[in-house]
Every structure is written in C-alpha cells, then in structure tokens.
Design a protein around this nucleic acid. Structure first.
Length: 261
DNA sequence: TCGTGTGTTCAGGT
DNA sequence: CACCTGAACACACG
C-alpha cells in the first residue's frame, strides 16, 4: 500500500532493523525489478552497510557507507521484510544477509516495484524529474504549481513530477476532505478552494502517516475507510460513487463534492 | 472465470 | 512545445 504515508512506515521499519550491519550475501531476483545491471547491485551491496535512510515521495533511499544509495520503489505491492530464519519469503526480489545472519528481503508479488542505485537523493530527484515532497510543499510553491494548468485537480495531485508522494487513494481523500469534485478543472478553482486543497494535503498526509507509522486506525471521518461504491458517505450526506479520473478508479461523495458546471 | 487494481511509463492527442 | 489522458504493464485475489 505504498503512497507517502506507507513509505514513511517502511522507512521507520528499515531504520529499526537493517542499519549498521555488514552485508555478507546478496541474492537478486527478477531482472525487471532492477533498473541497472544486477551485477552492479551485487558489487555495490556486498560487504557494504546501510548508514541511514531518507524518503522522497514514494521512494525510499537506503544510504550506504560509501556515498551511494539503494533506492526502493514499492510499486503497488512491495515491502521490506526483516527476519532471522532461513527460508526466504515468497516473492522476494532482493535478499540481503547480514553478518549476524539476520536478513532483509524486498518482496513484490506483482513485480511493479523497482530498485535503483543512485549517488544521492538530490541526484536521483533531478535525474528522474521528481517534484517536491508533498510534506515539504509550501503554499507559494503549491500555487505556483497550479498556475497555468488546465487538467483535472486529481490528475495534478497524482503527478509525481509536480508533487511527489500522493497516489490514487490519498488524492481521493484530500479532495473529499476539501469538498472538491475530483474532475474539477484546475483553472476553474477559486482561490479559496486552492487554499483548502493545500491545507488538506498537509493535514491528510500527516494524519495518515501518523496512523501508518504508529499502527493506528484512520479517523472515521475519512473516505479511505469506506472506499467502496454505494457505501455511506462518512459525513452521512449520501452514497459514495465510483468513476474514472485520469485513468484511475475514483471514489467521491456527489453531495459533499459538487461538480462545477 | 474474469475483472480489478494502492504503482509508473509512454504514445498520441490537444 | 507543454500539457493531458488513457492504455499497457504482471500477476494475485475475490
């Protein structure tokens, strides 16, 4: 389930399990996961160790001792699994064994995950045209990003080149909380609505991140917990509807989120 | 059985 | 040219 909040959880998980241990064995999986030669990964990781981690949008950067980093993108179903036993988990695409014989696997059943080697977060961000992290976004930058755009607001929120970290689920949540219809064209938004969306980006991501990292439940005022066609709107204003926006399944409440004419 | 889907990329249209 | 949309990708799951 990896949008920004879930990746924040993976970062916490990595920090608690795999730092400062020498990697003594590297096992790689399906070639399509690896964004450069698997041999390079083996060479870089073998006898190296992780010294810390960073996050940008949906990407996790595991920094290595010698100025490089392993970059993890979780796709739709990826996650890290740390364990002490011998059998490798199902769907493991990378397994590292540490000198204390504990291990970490990157598992990814649907193979939409990706692994990269990069020099630094900044270099990777530039190289891949990633936008500013959604939690580092300031109001002036957000208004700047909206300026001159003509597409749907939901499409913009999910565009990683503009804002990094928001995916399908939380784009719906932000718009539900802000009471904006997902197909609203950006150039039709009032100043007040733009402010509201900005406010809810910060709020929703903080709340969900907190919940994911601390293992708590989401508030029941959230769309995410009833994200299903025909469910009752969390504000009790009607039934949730399902449409397609920017190619993605979209849930919203037609009463709370009125369409503009 | 078959449709669906939390991810990105990329071709093609405006 | 910059921007936008939607199909394609691979495969588990209900």
């Amino acid at each position: 389930m990896p949008e920004l909040p879930e990746v924040a959880y993976q970062k916490k998980y990595a920090d608690a399990t795999i730092l400062h241990k020498k990697i003594v064995k590297v096992e790689t999986g399906d070639k399509k996961i690896y964004q450069s030669d698997k041999k390079d990964f083996e060479k870089v990781l073998q006898n190296n160790q992780f010294t810390g981690s960073e996050r940008l949008g949906k990407y996790l950067f595991l920094n290595l001792e010698k100025n490089r980093c392993l970059v993890v993108h979780f796709g739709m179903t990826g996650k890290l699994e740390y364990y002490q036993h011998d059998e490798v988990p199902k769907y493991a695409q990378l397994t590292l064994t540490f000198e204390d014989y504990s291990r970490v696997s990157f598992t990814c059943p649907r193979k939409f995950g990706k692994l990269y080697l990069a020099d630094s977060l900044t270099e990777f961000q530039k190289e891949n045209n990633l936008g500013i992290d959604a939690l580092a976004l300031g109001k002036p930058e957000f208004f700047e990003i909206l300026d001159g755009k003509t597409g749907t607001i939901k499409g913009l929120l999910m565009n990683q080149k503009l804002i990094a970290g928001i995916g399908n689920l939380y784009a719906d949540e932000v718009l539900f909380q802000a009471k904006i219809h997902p197909t609203t064209k950006i150039d039709k938004l009032s100043e007040k609505e733009k402010q509201e969306i900005f406010k809810e980006i910060e709020k929703v991501l903080e709340v969900v991140k907190e919940a994911r990292v601390e293992g708590k439940k989401l508030p029941d005022t959230y769309l995410t917990s009833v994200r299903k066609k025909g469910e009752d709107c969390p504000r009790n204003n009607g039934k949730i509807e399902q449409i397609k926006v920017s190619g993605r399944t979209t849930y919203f409440c037609p009463t709370c989120q009125k369409e503009k004419s």
